[in-house]
């Protein structure tokens, strides 16, 4: 410690002092992560369902898409989005007479797109595994009461698959938070980019990266806690009191209903249906 102070190699104070300056950009980092995750979940679910239901053609396209996304580095995908999306808009302007303002298209959106679709390929596999972990019998039971597949998916399959997928998806969300530091490639100033700017002012790069590490770590710890909490909430209770849900009133009505139902069925009953023995 003394050594550091004498040589001025490492400025401890600066690590703490520039935290507020960096934290101003934490919302951008989190926005990037949350929005990308939303795209990643939606597209990932779609891909997973396509693969589970083995929908012809779409299934091959999904496999191809996942292969490409997983086979190329995220930073390359970000560059492709950053240069490719404006090109695509320009092409549309020329061919379809649309009037997109290319220069105004935000890099932020490019970054969210690229990271969201990147995330979707990985989520697709996690979600697929979780969906196939749901017992087929329950899906059959849902069909047997007359539910459509989307209804069964929403009401029965997803709630159960979610508990299985949560740890994996949480893991990839944590990865995504840190992955947002690549968004500088799309000219987005998020926390890490701001750190570089701060470092450029006084050449104290080491200190600024230490500050960044502290912030990312803290954020990750909070997210981990949050995930644990959600996991706990999703757990079914170990024990339940008898009569937990049926209040006296409900029970009385139930009895009345059952009696009424019985008499209703009795009228349908044919006399010769009485049981032998």
């Amino acid at each position: 410690m003394q050594l550091f102070a004498e040589t001025n190699l490492f400025d401890f104070g600066l690590v703490g002092r520039q935290l507020p300056e960096l934290l101003k950009y934490l919302p951008i980092t989190l926005e990037l992560a949350v929005l990308s995750m939303m795209i990643g979940l939606a597209v990932g679910l779609l891909l997973a369902v396509i693969r589970i239901k083995r929908i012809p053609v779409l299934r091959q396209i999904a496999a191809f898409y996942i292969s490409i996304i997983r086979g190329t580095p995220a930073i390359v995908q970000l560059y492709i989005a950053y240069f490719g999306i404006p090109m695509l808009l320009k092409y549309m302007n020329l061919h379809f007479g649309t009037d997109f303002d290319i220069s105004a298209f935000p890099g932020f959106a490019c970054a969210v797109f690229a990271m969201g679709f990147n995330e979707s390929a990985y989520n697709a596999e996690t979600i697929r595994a979780a969906l196939s972990s749901v017992d087929r019998g329950q899906i059959e039971a849902a069909s047997a009461v007359g539910m459509t597949y989307p209804q069964a998916l929403r009401r029965i399959i997803l709630p159960e698959a979610m508990t299985v997928a949560l740890p994996g998806l949480g893991n990839s969300f944590i990865g995504l938070i840190k992955g947002t530091s690549l968004a500088f490639t799309c000219a987005v100033v998020e926390m890490t980019a701001q750190g570089k700017i701060l470092g450029g002012r006084n050449y104290r790069y080491f200190e600024v990266y230490v500050s960044l590490a502290i912030i990312y770590w803290a954020v990750t710890i909070i997210v981990e806690r949050l995930l644990k909490f959600v996991e706990k909430r999703l757990e079914l209770p170990e024990q339940i009191d008898k009569n937990a849900e049926a209040s006296e009133e409900v029970k009385d009505k139930a009895k009345a209903y059952a009696r009424e139902a019985e008499t209703r069925y009795d009228t349908n009953k044919k006399p010769e249906k009485a049981f032998s023995q």
Binding site: L236, P237, Q239, I240, D241, K242, N243, A244, E245, A246, V250, K251, K253, A254, K255, Y257, A258, A261, E262
Partner: peptide, 24 residues
């Protein structure tokens, strides 16, 4: 639906277990 379901559970003698999950 709750009333009707409660009636059906009564019919099979499961009223007092209404709030229990299958694993219980």
């Amino acid at each position: 639906a709750r009333m009707l379901a409660a009636g059906e559970l009564e019919r099979v003698g499961m009223t007092e277990w209404s709030g229990h999950y299958p694993k219980h």
